[in-house]
Design a binder for these strands. Structure first.
Lengths: 199, 199, 199, 199
DNA sequence: TATGAATGAGCATTCATTCAT
DNA sequence: GATGAATGAATGCTCATTCAT
């Protein structure tokens, strides 16, 4: 077997490594201080490179942010799609359970980025579509619930909105507390399906 | 009776008028474009004063933002407190209904500022306490529900979190759609208390 | 008589003064070192203002350059137009003499800027039209010579080209030598009309 | 005879080839966009080499420019010298004709570089001596005219200046129009010797 | 007090130069 | 020698803040 790597491969790997370091640094800073408090100088320092190096990887600051969102999305989207598709054969309730569970599991892996996504949502960055991906997923599942007759069509929109908002709110809180996300999956579903009244 | 105003009073009124204009302009710009896209020059222009004038009213930009948040809070807080206090004699369910209704009514009046509050929450501005005020209110009501036995203590935190998140999410959506907030009050309460399952 | 100036007038005068200082500084630096060796920091220093101040007068560097060219042109163009119009009643030869004389007199007053114009001509700045103004003038005069029968139509273009080139070349040389421009007027005309052969 | 090339010779040839490619690329870019709009990265790309390679051939950017000017001058200068020397036995008028004709013929071959030379003349690059070479030639020829009594000594400088300026102006125009240079040789000489007046 | 011009620190970006492979 | 990524100084530009009038 060819265990060695060609010079080109080595270069490409090195490039990859540096790019990953830059995007990680950017994500970290943005998550910690916000998109507008993450100057390139700091990103470069945290990534361990010079400022000019950033421009060997991205055309400009915006392109770097776009790359960050697209890179993360490339990891998140398939998982979200799988989460949506996974329960397609299930009845509404188990499907919703499954979906929320899967979503939180994915979000857990990308905590830092999820924080960034939620906190920058109001900026309506064109490259930030993860929020929409989540929205689509919830809507699809809810629509299944409507068709199945479990959810009133008239209440579907509000329900979807609430699911999305609750997910974001809880995730944000847990992330800021350094707490895990998954434990909230089951109680949240029960709350949303059966209501808060104890029986 | 002294119907006239002393020169001092006139001065004070003028000051008040200008300050209000400045804070309104700031709020408007921040709501429209974000905290970091609201330069003092634009705020001054929109307020109809010169840049230098801003510094006769506020020590610096941050102080102006603080003043904006405190000014609005001064209007919101009493209303929120009233909303909390109002239902103190009611049972949990009607109290929650009342509370959510009152909150949305207050938020409706301050749509623009509420947008600002929610969208800047992640910046953890020390002066921004409206979110906490809301949180406190929800927690107090929920606590009443726990004491009354309607809400399980173990689920209280999640329930409170969900109520808060749902309120924020729905309010943000309605504001961005230009839709009124109040129509969501009743359905939301029903959803949260009884669950999404149609019966 | 009102010898005093209103506050506004004073402000406007001050503004004018500063703007003139900036454009002069820019012209000086560009004349000395070239358009691409005149950083805003140096222009500001030479004008005795801070860098930021430049932006109170011009939108950006390019706008400043444009303003420089337009300001100078506003002074040069009328003089060139007058130079062209002045000899309209004269026969070709005296008209050409008059024209060249007038042109050199105007150029003498704006030596520094003329240097800039000639040396930046190849950059084809949209705002730099003085070269064209001169070209138009020469062509008009030459056309009069053609109509009068003094100049062959077939040689008119080359003659115009040569007049323009000679003017630029001589002017540039005299400016770089610190010599006056006018003394060349008469000999140049004689050379161009009668040829170099001594008789 | 040794018809083959040693390894060293091959190396030297390769070096030569690459250097030529680099200088050509530099000349092309500078002619098209100007000295200050020709970054090394673009020169390298156009030459088909990596940026770092440039530094194996030239100490730095300036040295590269110097090399470009010296390389071209090495081709131009002999031709100019020949042009000057060629007419040494001729009378002034035919000598001037010959000279201008020869100069334009040489310039035709090096259009691109001549454009660069004329347009960068005001930068007074130490390495750019082609303009001086031309000047020397014109002066020598004119001096012959003075000695021969055809040109007044008092008008010699102006005549020389005008010849040089006219040559540059016409050449620049023809190059920018994509027109050939030689057709202007005869009419230009007639104009300069006999004047513009048609007889 | 109101005004708006002046200031300069901070930021994004470019590009000649260096250097490890 | 060739490569191209890394470097950081230089530059244009923004904007909160200061200050003379």
């Amino acid at each position: 077997m060819n265990q060695g790597s060609s010079k080109q491969q080595l270069r490409a790997q090195l490039r990859e490594t540096v790019q990953v370091a830059i995007l990680d640094a950017a994500e970290e800073l943005i998550a910690d201080r916000g998109l507008h408090a993450a100057p390139l100088a700091q990103i470069a320092r945290r990534a361990g490179v010079a400022v000019g190096t950033l421009y060997n990887y991205f055309a400009d600051r915006e392109a770097m942010i776009v790359a960050l969102f697209e890179n993360r999305r490339a990891q998140l989207r398939p998982a979200l799609r799988t989460a949506i598709a996974a329960g397609r054969d299930l009845a509404f309730e188990p499907r919703l359970r499954q979906f929320v569970h899967d979503v939180l599991r994915v979000f857990e892996i990308h905590r830092r980025f999820i924080k960034v996504v939620i906190e920058t949502e109001h900026l309506r960055l064109k490259s930030s579509t993860t929020g929409q991906d989540l929205g689509k997923g919830v809507e699809e599942v809810v629509e299944a619930g409507v068709i199945e007759g479990v959810i009133d069509r008239g209440r579907a929109e509000l329900f979807a909105l609430t699911v999305i908002a609750a997910l974001k709110g809880i995730v944000l809180r847990r992330i800021s507390d350094g707490a895990p996300l998954l434990p909230d999956a089951v109680p949240l579903i029960e709350l949303l399906l059966d209501g808060a009244r104890s029986r």
